[in-house]
Amino acid sequence: MRLLSWNIQWGRDASGVVDLGRTLDEARRIVDFDVLALQEVTRGFRSLPGGPSDDQFAELAAALPGFTVLEAIGADLPPLVPGGARRQFGNALATRLPVEQVIRHTLPWPADENTPSMQRVALEAVVRTPIEPLRIIVTHLEYYSLKQRVAQVDDLRRLQLEAAGHAAHPAPAENATGPFAGTARPVSAIVCGDFNSEFGSEAYQRFVAPLAGAPGFVDAWTTLHPGHTPPPTAGVYDVEQWSSGPIACDFVFITEDLTSRLQRCEIDGATRASDHQPIVLELR
């Protein structure tokens, strides 16, 4: 199973030009992905720099035949003009693997009066791989507020404990056709995205701390490259937005029980199709 995680900045490259089709072409060049986990996908946000299309989620679905394209909206704001489209900003997950449950988690957003911020979400999909079902979660944590980032990390850890409870004590479905489906969720998971937390930072260390009662998370890149610091994933080519210099803030984490299946995790440092660099994960 091959996964590519990427903050695509609504298809805006390091020089400021928006072209979502080019972004997808770059993703395909990098790896023949089974799962594409994207952050900063928009609908109704033509006002953003470069002028993205009216509905990038629909654009993704049209460009990826044979894939299921899922969305989770974080910021959902009124139109700028009467009768216009709502402005929506969030995450997308596209996969050609069979999809079972899909869960959209609203992450904590505690008040922090000193910084701008937006509502953040985590999009969870249970997919069937040739070996076993997995939970794949794509998220994008708050940029400006450490208080909110830490709260969001804690909630992602809570969700892992919740899933472990459902895995150990699944409830039956009410019937075969109603919404009360069985609650079984696999404990094995991949969590990926833009954490807006530098490698080794407080939020990063908090996320990879051991969990009592469930397999905890490990950084897939450092597991395969022990003793090394990951290369930067943001601000490598876009030095205008990242004037203070590039950082590593995008990660793919896996639960500890998946480490024996970990075959590859690489950061593509060549593409200039976003202000972030994509990460490729491959499981045996």
Rank of each mutant, 00 (worst) to 15 (best):
M1Q: 10
L4V: 13
R12L: 08
A14K: 08
R22D: 13
T23S: 15
L24S: 11
E26Y: 02
R28M: 06
R28N: 07
F33V: 09
D34E: 05
F45A: 15
L48E: 07
E59T: 14
G66I: 08
F67M: 13
F67E: 08
A72L: 02
G74I: 06
A75S: 15
P78W: 11
V81M: 09
R86W: 13
A92I: 03
R96E: 07
R96C: 10
P98C: 11
V99P: 10
H105N: 12
T106N: 13
P108C: 12
A111S: 15
D112H: 09
E113S: 13
Q119F: 02
R120V: 04
L123E: 10
E124M: 03
V126N: 02
V127G: 03
V127N: 00
R128N: 13
T129H: 04
T129I: 06
I131C: 01
P133C: 06
I137C: 13
T139R: 00
H140G: 07
L141G: 03
S145M: 11
S145H: 08
L146P: 15
K147W: 05
R149S: 06
D154Q: 11
R157P: 01
L159H: 05
G165Q: 00
A167C: 02
H169E: 14
E174R: 15
G178W: 06
G178P: 09
A181D: 11
A181C: 14
T183G: 00
A184Q: 01
A184T: 01
P186R: 04
P186C: 04
C192F: 07
G193S: 05
G193T: 05
D194N: 09
F195T: 02
Y204R: 09
Y204I: 08
V208I: 15
V208T: 13
V208P: 04
L211D: 02
G213L: 04
A214Y: 00
A220H: 03
L224T: 04
P226Y: 10
P231C: 08
P232Q: 02
T233M: 01
A234D: 08
G235P: 01
G245T: 04
C249K: 05
V252S: 05
F253G: 00
I254A: 04
L258H: 03
R264P: 01
C265D: 06
C265H: 06
G269P: 01
D275F: 03
P278V: 02
